[in-house]
Write a protein that binds this DNA or RNA. Structure first.
Length: 348
DNA sequence: AACGCGGGGGA
DNA sequence: TCCCCAGCGTT
């Protein structure tokens, strides 16, 4: 018995009774599918009830003012779904005479309907043999077949769609799709999957190799953080004030200059009015020169670096700060941009 | 190919 | 906190 037959069997015995499962009305199914995009069933359910109640047909929906749609959508998030629904409802009213299409090739052209939703509506409303691939399906397939290709890479998306197509029960596409998703949501969950009662665990690669926690693989979206570094050049005779960096941040244990990091909203000439800065540097300090800002790009940080040359010395040396002779700078590991600035400044 | 778009729930 | 949720449109 293949995975699909097993899961359909499990589904029929364990499925939740959800209102959109009791109809083949493409409009109602569309309504539910849009609401459920990136949204848990429990969260979307009351919204579905309110929409289906207020707008029983696509003609009702198409006649609604956008304000009403968005008001009813309030609190559900991703509000472009609501706006796109209205456009689509109006188009269906005009071009399809108020009859919601059920064919994948027609659905995919509508605003707010992508591959997943087109496959869902066409299979649920007309038993068209289209395999859905949503977050649940990615997870079930990745675990069962032990695939570590990232699900959000272009290659991975293509691979999982193909695999979903191969697994699809062409005789029962609607049941198959429902089963895959219900199984992923109820049993093959992201965390703590219920492998103990899983009907397909004996064929599951992730179960057999104890890899459920590491599958599916998802590429991290490297979030780039913007940081604003004001580096201070402070000298005393032939010495310059340096800082040895800590363990945790970028450039760990390397050397740089005394640093004032801000959120980017502080004008450089006002830095020394900040209370905590004032406390360290006191009043015997004056700005001699402010260099133009340099953008320094790291893998997950963008640094906006500004060098400020000062006259005078700070009142309190902070941990890690020390004066050293300019001759000594070549021996210390420093971030390149900082080294270059100091080198140019002292012309060595 | 990468990013913005929301709010909620679970670990 | 971070991750994920019946994804899609834009750039």
């Amino acid at each position: 018995m293949n995975i699909s037959a097993e899961l359909i069997g499990w589904y029929e015995a364990n499925k939740r009774d959800l209102p959109w499962r009791n109809t083949t009305d493409a409009y109602i199914i569309w309504l539910s599918e849009i609401i459920l995009q990136q949204t848990r069933v429990e969260q979307g359910l009351p919204y579905f009830e309110r929409f289906a109640d207020k707008y029983p047909t696509v003609s009702h929906f198409a006649a609604a003012p956008e304000d009403d749609i968005l008001r009813l959508w309030q609190g559900l998030g991703y509000y472009s779904r609501g706006r796109n629904m209205l456009k689509t409802a109006q188009l269906v009213q005009q071009h399809y005479n108020g009859v919601f299409p059920t064919a994948y090739e027609q659905l995919i052209k509508l605003k707010g309907i992508g591959e997943y939703t087109a496959a869902a509506i066409s299979s649920f409303s007309a038993n068209e043999a289209r395999a859905v691939v949503d977050g649940n399906v990615y997870r079930v397939l990745a675990r069962y077949f032990g695939i570590d290709e990232p699900i959000n890479s272009p290659k991975g998306k293509k691979l999982f769609q193909q695999l979903a197509n191969e697994v699809l029960d062409h005789e029962r596409p609607a049941q198959h799709n429902q089963a895959m998703m219900e199984f992923g949501a109820m049993l093959c969950k992201p965390k703590n999957p219920a492998c103990g009662i899983c009907p397909i665990r004996l064929g599951c690669v992730a179960f057999k190799t104890n890899a459920t926690t590491s599958l599916p693989v998802k590429l991290k979206t490297v979030k780039v953080r913007k940081r604003y570094f004001n580096y201070l050049l402070i000298t005393e005779g032939d010495k310059v004030l340096l800082n040895k960096r800590g363990e945790t941040d970028i450039w760990a244990n390397m050397y740089d200059l005394p640093l004032i990091e801000t959120d980017g909203t502080v004008e450089p000439h006002k830095l020394f009015e900040l209370p905590d800065v004032q406390q360290i540097y006191g009043n015997g300090i004056a700005i001699r020169n402010i260099e133009p800002e340099i953008k320094h790009v790291l893998t997950h940080q963008q640094l906006f670096i500004r060098f400020i040359v000062l006259n005078g010395q700070p009142e309190k040396l902070q941990p890690g700060w020390f004066y050293t002779k300019v001759d000594n700078l070549n021996k210390l590991a420093m971030p390149k941009r900082i080294f270059i600035f100091i080198k140019d400044f002292f012309n060595f």
